[in-house]
Amino acid sequence: MNIFRFAGDMTHLASVLVLLLKIHTIKSCAGISLKTQELYALVFATRYLDLFTDYISLYNTLMKLIFLGSSFSIVWYIRYHKIVRRSYDKDQDTFRHYFLVLPCLLLALLINEKFTFREVMWTFSLYLEAVAILPQLVLLQRTRNIDNLTGQYVFLLGAYRALYILNWIYRYFTEPHYVHWITWISGLVQTLLYADFFYYYFQSWKNNVKLELPA
């Protein structure tokens, strides 16, 4: 464990807690893409298949349970909670996320480190996580203005993967044989997808104006 990875995990934890807090307190999911939340639940479900088979550390197991629990409860809130679901804008959240799932699955079947069920599922979860934010970014473009909780959520989500890139660089130089091209490339693609959002986020933060995304 290194400081970059720990900071990355804490940032990732903060992003899901910010979202849960928003939905739980103001009972609204305005501006939140259910599609992205469903994709994230799928990412965790396919990545943490080893939850009960490989014990790595208490921290690892605890964090996996938190990420699984939070992502599925966010999906539950938006889908089934009688008050929250009313604020879900399904006419705007129309990204066909199946068009993301299938290519990622095919790619995972083609490019992976070992052709086993667990390894393909894990690789699938990496590719899917890289693009899972797209429905949310599309929704933000459509609804133009975004409330700061959603802005913070997306920012933290992007920051966590950027910290993970520092973690991979650190581990590459400190651990022999630590080479995982698939992880690194999908993590880089993921961070680059946030890049333009980061740009506008910092612009609005610097000029102290409400975050407006160009249409």
């Binding site: 995990d9 990732h12 790595i56 690892n60 964090m63 973690n167």
Partner: peptide, 10 residues
Amino acid sequence: YQKHPKKDEL
């Protein structure tokens, strides 16, 4: 023998 299997990251 690797101390941790490769999947030690979240």
